[in-house]
């Protein structure tokens, strides 16, 4: 059971690290389109690995294999590119690629 705990802890910390990386990208980048890049990749990978850790944890609780956490991962993998595409289309419609000035300094 120690090996299972090690696997669960590894996937949890990996997922949280990827979520934090996506949010740092959202915080630090200067342009909207570069800012769109960070969360849409990193958070799906982060929440995906955290749902995988949850599936492993509940599979070793003694009630058989629990696979319904994979549903969240599958749903996020389908919907994250769609929502990013809609956001990019909205930003293109607002002509946000024409004005190229950077953010005001913090």
């Amino acid at each position: 059971m120690v090996v299972v705990e090690c696997i669960i802890s590894f996937f949890l910390i990996l997922g949280a690290f990827f979520a934090l990386t996506g949010s740092i990208g959202l915080y630090r980048m200067t342009n909207f389109f570069t800012r769109l890049h960070g969360p849409t990749k990193a958070t799906t990978l982060g929440v995906g690995s955290m749902a995988l850790a949850s599936a492993v944890y509940f599979s070793f609780q003694g009630n058989g294999i629990s696979l319904h956490e994979v549903l969240i991962t599958l749903f996020l993998f389908i919907t994250a590119p769609v929502s990013a595409h809609f956001l990019a289309k909205a930003a293109l419609h607002l002509r946000m690629h024409k004005n190229t000035e950077a953010l005001p300094p913090r």
Binding site: G15, A16, A19, G22, S23, L26, F32, R35, L36, P39, T43, T44, G46, V47, M50, I72, L76, A80, S83, L87, A90, A91, L94, M96
Partner: peptide, 16 residues
């Protein structure tokens, strides 16, 4: 769109 993107990211972190 920045605010919408931040709100979407907050939803995903709430799932986590």
């Amino acid at each position: 769109p920045d605010r919408i993107l931040a709100l979407d990211n907050m939803y995903i972190d709430a799932i986590a």
